[in-house]
Design a protein around this nucleic acid. Structure first.
Lengths: 290, 290
DNA sequence: CCATATACCTGACGCTAGTCAGAGATCAAG
DNA sequence: CTTGATCTCTGACTAGCGTCAGGTATATGG
């Protein structure tokens, strides 16, 4: 298959050209691992467990790297408010300065790559990079049925409610909408699907199974991960779960400000119908026969 | 600049996603370095110095890796014919079997990457990979004015003549065409530009300066590197050299079978003119005022 | 022939990255 | 309060990657 050969050529070329560049600019006086850590912590700080998840680090290894940087005076760690097991790491002023230096170097590396190309080819190059990056990210997204009370699910739900509160004209209060109890979206009554990207939750969706129909609820995708087709995949997964349960019909309702959601439902085969419940925040009701 | 940010995001995503994949499939029972060595040696064998140059290895490190593989019975080294200092390394039957296994795994890795994407997104992904790879290769191409008697220049000229012999209807004999003496394309009388990709010659072009015009000769790009805009860049470089010398006019002639060359000249501002010499292999004559 | 450069090998060494087991503190659920 | 899970840290260890200095054999130019 030619696609396979293309991927292999790509891997070879990219690792060769990019790898050399990265090391030449970033691996100067600090190890690459430590640099990556500084990058990831960023100006706002971060929980260590999140850091580990993002960079796929062994807890011992991460701890050692952090201690090294702490000894250099680049960062300090404090207990996270709320959960005292978790530690929060932030950059000191010296650390921020170091990060700024790394950022400058990284910009230089990127610039030098761009400048090697004749001007005319640059826009095409940047566009192609964007396409590959998006699709590579999309391919790394994993969907799983999870416990709706779990950490990842709860994180998604909180972000979801926050977003609704910000986008709805009159705000949003979960207590006023039709409730979704955790048991209703826990197998076998229903399902709660979480999408993760490198271990971090980036989207969710729930299915509530009734006798003669299923309800799609709590569809959400993290803003930074939109455009990767995650919403569609969550919806398809819920649909597959519904089919397995022999649910003959799917129903959902949505707010008029959530235009991208409406587009998703329409493109997924849902058709608008008359209101089938009295959800106060809904403007449109959809159905799809399975 | 947004292009810079895109490049940085790309680097991050790609090194993360691809790196993990490569290691999971290739770094199973052998180190990644050793695997890469086997890949590079390939079915036809290779000189050790060439191997070192390609993979950018320290001589000691390369020697140790090779000895490890030799101990496993995967390869054997012999003195190179000609220069007894140089050693040539070839795969044993067991080595070839191992290489085949690596190739299968590499195919699997590429396949697993592809399979993670929903079917609909795959063609776009492969196309984007191709675009990035081509442009990355293009950005790694270096042009330099070189001695036309040098190793790289002579390599290009030989391939050039071979290609003309194969493509021209009645073959090609350099002795019958208008000759280009090495001194004529050596500064300051003229210039011989060689394009290299990772140190290997992939194209050439020459400029002969006369009192009132310059002649473009010996334009060639290696078949495997076509479509990267190398020809255009060589031509532009020769043009810049001509301008610097205050040459007022560029001339060149070409054969009717070299259609891609004609397209290049036309798109570079050359216009067809009446024959200005009696080059026996030429069908078209071009000029461009500077 | 000599001096110098090239190609390769060997031994010694250091750093980075990463793994593993286990311990201590904390949390959540029963 | 107990139990089991989670988060972090520590110590011990390994493999891989790479560098450096020095040595041997061979080639090249005078």
């Amino acid at each position: 298959m030619d696609a396979i050969a293309q991927i292999r050529r790509f891997n070879r070329t990219v690792t060769q050209e990019i790898g050399v560049l990265e090391e030449r600019f970033l691996g100067r006086d600090r190890s690459l691992g430590a640099s990556r850590l500084l990058f990831e912590i960023g100006a706002n700080g971060m929980e260590i467990r999140q850091l580990r998840a993002r960079l796929n680090l062994d807890s011992g290894y991460a701890s050692r790297l952090l201690r090294g940087l702490e000894a250099e005076g680049l960062l300090h760690t404090v207990r996270s408010s709320g959960d005292a097991r978790v530690r929060h790491v932030t950059l000191t002023p010296a650390g921020r300065k170091e990060l700024a230096l790394l950022n400058r170097r990284s910009d230089q590396a990127a610039g030098s790559l761009l400048r090697r190309l004749p001007e005319a080819q640059r826009p095409a190059f940047v566009a192609a990079l964007g396409a590959v990056e998006r699709l590579l990210l999309a391919s790394a997204v994993r969907l799983r049925v999870e416990n709706p009370r779990g950490r990842r699910a709860q994180y998604c739900l909180q972000r979801y409610f926050e977003e609704l509160a910000a986008r709805f004209e009159r705000g949003y209060d979960p207590a006023l909408g039709i409730p979704v109890a955790a048991t209703e979206v826990t197998p076998p009554q229903g399902f709660f699907v979480v999408a993760t990207l490198n271990g971090e939750p980036v989207g969710c969706g729930a299915l509530k199974c009734h006798a003669d129909y299923g309800e799609i609820k709590r569809m959400w995708v993290a803003p930074a991960s939109r455009g990767l087709g995650i919403g569609k995949r969550i919806l398809q997964r819920l649909e597959a779960l519904a089919r397995k349960r022999r649910v003959p019909l799917l129903r959902l309702e949505t707010n008029k400000t959530l235009t991208e959601a409406q587009a998703l439902y329409r493109s997924s085969g849902f058709g608008e119908v008359r209101p089938f419940n009295d959800e106060p925040y809904a403007h449109y009701w959809f159905e799809k026969a399975l």
